[in-house]
């Protein structure tokens, strides 16, 4: 078990190996399809992505008195090409589910970043690790807006590491 608090540096990335279980604590950003399109198009220089963690999630609405609804990962492959310019701007870790393209993996290694998976469909469980939520960009996107989440012991696994290894069956 490895504990990590963002922002993440290259030394931390190097220590991670496919299959490692990681508990994240601190601030992570959310973005999925539409937010990625805008972040890439807008450049969004007001958003500091140095050492940042991006979690691919679109939560269910919070009930009154709760912080957030179900918050499990969405499939990552849809963000493959859009992830590259964001890694070039400093993103060090992406959390989602499922395998991704070879082109993504190559760009990830080049940029010294890492791809993590959280358990898909475990939306209720993962939301219990989120301690606060605020919208920081593209509020009109609703569930797809960029949120800053404060998480505590958020569980995920290293899926692709910078050493070229993968957690997935069938990947070389």
């Amino acid at each position: 078990m490895i504990r990590i608090t963002p922002p993440i540096d290259n030394a931390t990335i190097k220590q991670l190996h496919a299959g490692d279980k990681v508990l994240l604590s601190g601030t992570i950003l959310t973005a999925r399809d539409q937010a990625h399109i805008r972040l890439v198009k807008d450049q969004a220089t007001d958003l500091d992505l140095k050492g940042a963690v991006i979690y691919y999630v679109g939560p269910t609405p919070a009930r009154p008195g709760e912080i957030i609804g179900a918050s499990g990962p969405t499939s990552s492959y849809r963000m493959d090409s859009l992830s590259v310019p964001l890694m070039e701007r400093g993103v060090k870790m992406m959390i989602g589910k499922g395998n991704r393209s070879k082109a993504f993996r190559n760009a990830m290694i080049e940029n010294n970043a890492v791809y993590m998976i959280a358990t898909g469909g475990a939306g209720a469980l993962l939301s219990s690790k989120i301690k606060s939520v605020r919208v920081i960009k593209y509020e009109d996107l609703g569930t797809e807006a960029v949120h800053a989440l404060e998480v505590e012991d958020f569980p995920c696994f290293v899926a692709y590491d910078v050493h070229g290894k993968s957690i997935f069956k069938g990947d070389v």
């Binding site: 269910t60 009930r63 179900a70 969405t74 898909g120």
Partner: peptide, 8 residues
């Protein structure tokens, strides 16, 4: 009594 998954 909460959603199992965020993709409802």
């Amino acid at each position: 009594k909460a959603p199992l998954c965020q993709d409802t």
